[in-house]
Design a protein around this nucleic acid. Sequence first.
DNA 1: ATGACTATAATTAGTTT
DNA 2: TAAACTAATTATAGTCA
Lengths: 191, 191
Amino acid sequence: MNPVEVKKRICEGRKKIEIKLIEKEENRQVCFSKRRQGLFKKASELSILCGAEVAAVVFSPAGKPYFFGNPSVDHVLRRFLSNISGPSDTLSPATTNCAELVNHDQLVQKPFWWDIDLHSMGVDELREYEKFLLEQQTVVTQAAQQCCFEAPEAAMEQIDALPHTSPELGEADYFLWLLQEIMDSPDIDPI
Amino acid sequence: MNPVEVKKRICEGRKKIEIKLIEKEENRQVCFSKRRQGLFKKASELSILCGAEVAAVVFSPAGKPYFFGNPSVDHVLRRFLSNISGPSDTLSPATTNCAELVNHDQLVQKPFWWDIDLHSMGVDELREYEKFLLEQQTVVTQAAQQCCFEAPEAAMEQIDALPHTSPELGEADYFLWLLQEIMDSPDIDPI
DNA sequence: ATGACTATAATTAGTTT
DNA sequence: TAAACTAATTATAGTCA
């Protein structure tokens, strides 16, 4: 067998695929994982390059939630929902109809559960909550170290590319991200 | 000038760019338009190929909203928001303590088992919840893995990378699309 | 602003380990 | 089960019509 044939056999490269539901469950799962990462990366690049606010929410076929947001999912969705349901000086009739048809009453008025009112906490509660977050951060850090064998550079690039993993992350999204991390890393022994 | 040089001048091809805010306003605008389309196309392909539910919301730097959703933005955001903020028939967030949560069967069946009002927790409850959170990691993940794939309704042919521009558009998304159109055409007097 | 073009960068389907 | 690999496909920065 000549070298060309050998190389051919080793890897046929990417094949053009039709955009329709992938039949084989295993392939579908792998594809979902790869493309979800790709989608979030694209979303991140768009927000950074163009200064845009982007939110992406994905449910896997199994019902697992994934999300990306810059500056945060909470921020973008709030803006979006207020846009389509809130009163507007210039778009009043249209938005009124929109609010009626979409029936966003629950959607808009219900407070997000992560709107934790820090001011209402006592000192002890605040300290405890802070401790709680720090401990959770340790878990996530360990998980990341165990799960990610990438070069530090690549890891840092990835972290930079995903704003919800940055230290500047708001409290609300940090917690969401943390839960996502935990659910994504079942094999990690916490603390 | 020889042909090679001419060809060079005509198109230098794509250049590698650093992921940071594009300084020149015009370039940023063009990039936004192109990449927004690319993002929505990726989102569409992900939902079709893998039977996933995907929503993406983008605000341009000028504040114009764009969105993509399969089966609809409304559907995905409702699912997302209800899962993270919605009440449970059996779990009362304000009064549920961790002991009750631990023993609750539904907990492992719901992907959003963290449907808990942290704000209402005292120190002890927070600590207990932390412990519970970590202990239940494996259980929850296993439960998630056991979830059966839903009938992939998303397999149905998607009209386009931008379904909200289609006539078959659902009522809710039609209004969202309408709003988008209106905001894209400030010169047109919105009804 | 909008679309077409081109060459390069980036993504990813299939394979191997 | 997952990670690395390879190469074909896809996305897109820059340019021009």
